[in-house]
Write a protein that binds this DNA or RNA. Structure first.
Length: 593
RNA sequence: CGGGGCGUGGCUCAGCCUGGUAGAGCGCCGCGUUCGGGACGCGGAGGUCGGAGGUUCAAAUCCUCUCGCCCCGACCA
């Protein structure tokens, strides 16, 4: 990805809207202008070419212009420069010698704000598109004062609250209780489980001082809570009658990542972490899978409209300290995989490390079998990258904090009164049935509001203007079909019912679209060459009978990993894509976030 | 930790090479005209130029140190 660097470098210019690209600007300070010593500087080969053509037309010899008159003339044909983020003019002299005017073939008026282009298109730069959505939909802001952290702004946090609500319901319905454990964990706790410490040690933050003194034992800021919860479970569980112990915690955790991206990977993130203890392995396994299916996959597909593949992680990819890790994997619009949730059967590893034991019916002391599972604010990233488009965020109706926005339209006081009455009548029965907002800000034009709500992903927009008041109609626009195409005019009668139906229709359409995308970008591969090609497009399904080393080698060579061994297997025999050995097991390869 | 870039009104950035009055657009505030897909005019407020030293009659600009952020890589998923 090119970086937005100084205006003198090519990359900066290459990213400005093409037909507006700009050519050259006079620089130098006023004193220089007074002395007639202004130079014209040009950037990027294309712009240089444009500028020299213009210079020829203006009768200026090479090397920029020195004379005052020439400079004025040159500048008159120049255009202002637009900055990438706001696409606003960043440089125009209104005084002095330099009067910037329109570039002849530019269709945009100078200085006017430029719509569109505030979001980089997906085709141009997927990475930048993602960041643009996060910023323009006002979901989060990079907290530049705290490395790798973000501020969850109201629009982003509201989505998290919706996720919390839905997940919390499911977690409680399946018998779990919420608890809260300390943020700080004695460093020694982490070391008790060998694989666990190996997995997390490099990325924990450690508190060494407090109260003005060095601590005798440092605390780590929890990267996850298996250890401290394990410690307390050991105290709480005495007999089989205390089992199963089913806990969930809503918390923040910290993992010191080197490379971060809003929501997808941040130093601190919010999540739900479940921790349970059971009497038998079978029961723990049942719990692990139940969470995967009934809580995580169900939430992802039914609420987020994100189709997921449920699978088992390979040894390579499993949680540090787990017996087995299961996951749900989703496909983003660039064909890369995103792990949207994990559920681990921890076996007796933590039970042994923390001495979590119980006395069974036969008065024998046994180690418990524990599980843990989690989903995080990363889901917000999954949401964005699954449904959103070049116009902005798209939120599925069941998850949308605001499902419907109503924009009243009027020119004068008389119209305003009429429209307002109609709006009151129309929305009378919305309360309790729809999550809605009425955008009655009167310092903004309707057009601006349409775009803004589209940018923010509200699923349905209703417009009510004077014409609608006369005709008894409204304009109804659906976000999953952006722009004017998604707009239709419908009668006010029965509108509420119509919207309720439409919301479900949008929900289903989003899921169907995401599923179709995933299918189009998935393929079965039988050779290593095919595998290499397919992971450029999306998911590669393949027979697999390799070992850890084979897997690592593939990752080094292709940057792709085995995302999971899907739980649904075809069951038919085939040959391993890498080793050629016969097997019935298929896996999914992909590049991952 | 290596390589690169950047710190100037709320935001995005000019100005620095060649030292001499702090600039623009957007945003914000006020008034007026507008309002069915990103409106416009006029007026206004707003900046110890990241920090500390140094050079100089004079530093946003030159020198030294320092702090911070971003990008690419390494790491992680």
């Amino acid at each position: 990805m090119a970086s937005a660097s100084s205006p003198h470098s090519g990359s900066y210019w290459d990213r400005t809207p093409s037909q507006l690209a700009v050519d050259c600007w006079a620089f130098g300070r006023r004193r220089a202008l007074r002395r007639g010593r202004t130079r014209c500087a040009c950037a990027s080969p294309r712009l240089t070419a444009l500028a020299s053509a213009r210079r020829r037309r203006c009768g200026i010899s090479r090397g920029g212009c020195r004379a005052r008159a020439a400079c004025t003339k040159l500048a008159r044909n120049a255009v202002t420069i637009y900055d990438r983020q706001r696409c606003t003019s960043i440089h125009s002299y209104r005084t002095g010698l330099v009067q910037l005017t329109r570039f002849p073939d530019s269709r945009q008026p100078l200085g006017a704000t430029m719509p569109k282009d505030v979001i980089t298109t997906r085709a141009k730069d997927y990475n930048q598109w993602y960041l643009d959505i996060v910023r323009e939909a006002d979901m989060a802001e990079v907290a530049e004062v705290v490395k790798g952290c973000i501020v969850f702004k109201p629009n982003g946090y509201a989505i998290w609250e919706m996720m919390q609500r839905e997940l919390d319901n499911r977690i409680k319905e399946t018998g779990h209780s919420n608890v809260y454990f300390p943020l700080l964990i004695p460093e020694s706790f982490l070391r008790r489980e060998a694989q666990h410490v190996e997995g997390f040690a490099p990325e924990v933050a450690v508190v060494t001082h407090a109260g003005g003194e060095k601590l005798t034992e440092p605390y780590v800021i929890r990267p996850t809570s298996e250890t401290i919860i394990g410690y307390f479970m050991a105290k709480w569980i005495r007999s089989y009658r205390d089992l199963p112990l089913l806990l969930n915690q809503w918390a923040n955790v910290m993992r010191w990542e080197l490379r971060t991206r809003p929501f997808l990977r941040t130093t601190e993130f919010l999540w739900s972490e479940g921790h349970t203890a059971h009497a038998t392995e079978a029961e723990a396994e049942r719990e692990t899978l139940m969470i995967l299916h009934d809580v995580y996959a169900d939430f992802a597909e039914q609420v987020m409209a994100v189709p997921v593949i449920r699978g088992l992680k390979t040894e390579q990819e499993k949680f540090a300290g787990a017996l087995r890790s299961y996951c749900i994997e989703a496909m983003m619009q660039d064909g890369r995989a995103l792990q949207a949730g994990t559920s681990h059967n921890l076996g007796q590893n933590f039970a042994k490390a923390f001495d979590i034991t119980y006395t069974d019916q036969n008065n024998t002391v046994q180690h418990c079998w524990t599980t843990s599972w989690g989903v995080s604010t990363r889901l917000i990233g999954a949401l964005i990258m699954t449904h959103s488009d070049d116009e902005g965020l798209v939120i599925p109706p069941r998850l949308a904090p605001t499902q419907v926005v109503l924009v009243p339209i009027y020119k004068n006081e008389a119209e305003r009164t009429k429209v307002r009455e109609a709006v009151a009548r129309i929305t009378a029965d919305w309360k309790g049935r729809l999550r809605f907002k009425i955008d009655d800000r009167d310092n903004l034009t309707p057009g601006f509001k349409f775009n803004e709500w589209e940018l923010k992903g509200v699923p349905v927009r209703v417009e009510v203007g004077p014409k609608d008041v006369e005709k008894g109609s409204v304009a109804l626009a659906r976000r999953d079909v952006p722009g004017r195409e998604g707009k239709s005019f419908v009668p006010q009668d029965g509108l509420t019912e119509r919207i309720v139906v439409l919301l479900e229709e949008i929900q289903a359409a989003l899921f169907a679209r995401a599923l179709a995308f995933r299918e189009q970008h998935s393929a079965f591969v039988s050779t290593y060459d095919e595998l290499k090609q397919q992971i450029e497009r999306g998911f590669a399904w393949a027979y697999w009978d390799g070992n850890d080393e084979d897997e690592k080698r593939i990752q080094d060579e292709t940057r792709a990993t085995i995302r999971c061994i899907p739980l649904e297997q075809p069951g038919t025999p085939g040959t391993c894509v890498y080793t050629g050995r016969p097997t019935t097991r298929q896996v999914v390869f992909a590049r991952a976030y």
